[in-house]
Amino acid sequence: MAADSTNSLMTLEHVLPDLMSKTAATGLVPRELQAYVAPALEEFRNEMASELGMDDYAHIDKGELPSRLNGKVGGGMTKKMVSFAEAVLAWNYKNRTLLNEAGDKQPEMITE
Results as ranks from 00 to 15, higher is better:
25 A>V: 00
98 L>I: 10
83 S>Y: 02
11 T>M: 05
30 P>E: 03
15 V>W: 03
71 G>Y: 06
5 S>M: 14
31 R>S: 13
8 S>Q: 08
92 N>T: 04
7 N>Y: 03
25 A>W: 02
52 L>M: 07
63 G>H: 11
108 E>K: 10
39 P>C: 09
108 E>N: 08
48 M>T: 13
5 S>D: 05
85 A>Y: 13
3 A>Y: 02
33 L>K: 12
96 R>E: 01
94 K>E: 07
77 M>E: 11
11 T>H: 07
7 N>W: 03
14 H>M: 13
4 D>A: 10
96 R>C: 07
111 T>E: 06
88 V>E: 12
43 E>P: 00
10 M>E: 06
7 N>P: 00
16 L>G: 06
108 E>F: 12
25 A>I: 00
70 N>M: 04
20 M>V: 07
19 L>R: 03
103 G>Y: 04
31 R>H: 04
45 R>F: 01
100 N>I: 12
93 Y>P: 01
103 G>S: 09
93 Y>H: 14
42 E>C: 00
100 N>Q: 07
107 P>R: 04
32 E>Y: 07
17 P>L: 02
1 M>V: 11
19 L>P: 01
107 P>E: 04
10 M>P: 00
74 G>L: 06
86 E>A: 03
10 M>W: 00
42 E>R: 11
23 T>A: 15
64 E>I: 08
36 Y>A: 13
100 N>G: 14
22 K>N: 02
28 L>Y: 08
57 Y>T: 07
70 N>C: 10
41 L>R: 10
37 V>Q: 05
